[in-house]
Amino acid sequence: MIFYEFLYTSIGQAIAAYAPNEYFAAITNPIIIGAGLVSFCGVVVPYDALTPFWRYWMYYLDPFTYLVGGLLGEVIWDVKVECEPSELIKFAAPAGQTCGRYMADFISAQTGYLVDSSATQCEFCQYSTGADYAKTFNLREKYYAWRDTGITALFCISSYAMVVIMMKMRSKATKSAKSD
């Protein structure tokens, strides 16, 4: 959580360091962090639902991708999921078949569980563990959470380095720019 604080403040400081005035920085910061980075981290839009153009480069360049992996991966991975009745997918098995028999091939290849495999009115929960959910935002293994925490720390360090670089790049004209 502390890395989250460092990450968003360092990105904001880097934007402010090069912005010509406070007004420009105040408008640019939420656009870059909110609309830009949060939109491509795999949670707002799941990894598999991202357009391939964004999935193969922006997803991996987005520091919030690794922040989310580090925050959630270790916490939810081993949690057993029990769906509430309103969360279950309900359907009828074909005539003469039980839910377990009808869904056997699907369940062997997918995540989730049937509430009662001997019933003919099927109730299916799409996740059986937190790992099933974590895989929707591209955390394929439990150790990815620690890997992502380390990558987030590197993003924090590089973001603060960017603040220093942005301060050095400012010209005398932008350093003395005043807001109206």
Rank of each mutant, 00 (worst) to 15 (best):
M1A: 13
I2Y: 04
I2Q: 04
F3C: 03
L7N: 05
Y8W: 14
S10T: 08
I11P: 02
A19V: 00
P20C: 07
N21T: 02
N21P: 01
Y23P: 02
A26D: 10
N29W: 07
P30G: 04
I31K: 00
I32C: 01
S39H: 09
C41Q: 15
V43P: 07
V45S: 11
D48R: 09
D48E: 12
L50K: 09
T51F: 10
P52E: 05
W54G: 09
R55C: 02
Y56W: 13
M58W: 15
M58V: 15
M58E: 13
Y59K: 11
L61Q: 12
L61W: 14
L61Y: 10
D62I: 04
Y66H: 03
V68Y: 02
V68W: 06
E74C: 07
W77I: 07
D78P: 01
K80L: 07
V81W: 09
E82N: 09
C83F: 12
E84K: 11
S86T: 07
E87V: 04
K90G: 10
P94G: 10
G96Q: 10
Q97N: 12
G100E: 06
Y102E: 03
M103D: 06
D105Q: 05
I107N: 00
L114R: 01
S118N: 15
S118K: 11
Q121P: 00
Q121S: 10
Q121V: 00
E123W: 01
E123Q: 09
C125E: 06
S128V: 12
T136P: 04
R140D: 14
Y143H: 15
Y143C: 08
W146I: 14
W146E: 15
R147A: 13
G150K: 01
T152S: 13
L154R: 04
C156I: 03
S158N: 01
Y160C: 04
Y160K: 03
A161L: 11
V164K: 15
V164S: 12
K168Q: 09
M169S: 10
A177C: 12
